[in-house]
Amino acid sequence: MTVEDLRRSPLASYPGVTEIPFLTMVNVRVPPTGDAAARISARLGGPLPVVPNSVVEAGRRHILWLGPDEWLVVGPDGDRELPGMLPEAVDVSANRTTIEVRSRDLLEHGCTLDLHPRAFHAGRCAQTTIARTQVILWQTSDEPVYRLLVRGSFATYLADWLSDAACS
């Protein structure tokens, strides 16, 4: 048994929603231009996106624009290198968990963003609210597939809300 076996994700025992647990995440806050940004881009193998609410793929990781000087780098479960590789970064892997949703209709019950394909599509992300909680909404595919990155303490509420919305 390894220490990883002791991990428990917020929705580990929640049936009916698709949780992608234990993604590795770090928050990066540096000026968008300058040495630090350049060094980080080089280290990650992809530029820190400067287009608001866009996502850049960098190998097995994704870089999400959160603000003009703020990004979220998302790696797979077990990406042990990521938390320590950027001196400016803050490890936020356990801060949020990830729920996958495959219905725009479902989200429109509680999301005020315009999710029509003309306005939002794969490769876009947004910090916004769904129902009464904040999320990072990230569309990964045009099918559509969305990822909702939600604070661990709100995960059960959001799962409850999504499950209930799915009954409509």
Binding site: P52, L66, G67, P68, E70, A126, Q127, T128, T129, Q134
Partner: peptide, 8 residues
């Protein structure tokens, strides 16, 4: 301030 978004 865009508090629920980019916080700018």
């Amino acid at each position: 301030v865009h508090s629920a978004g980019c916080r700018r």
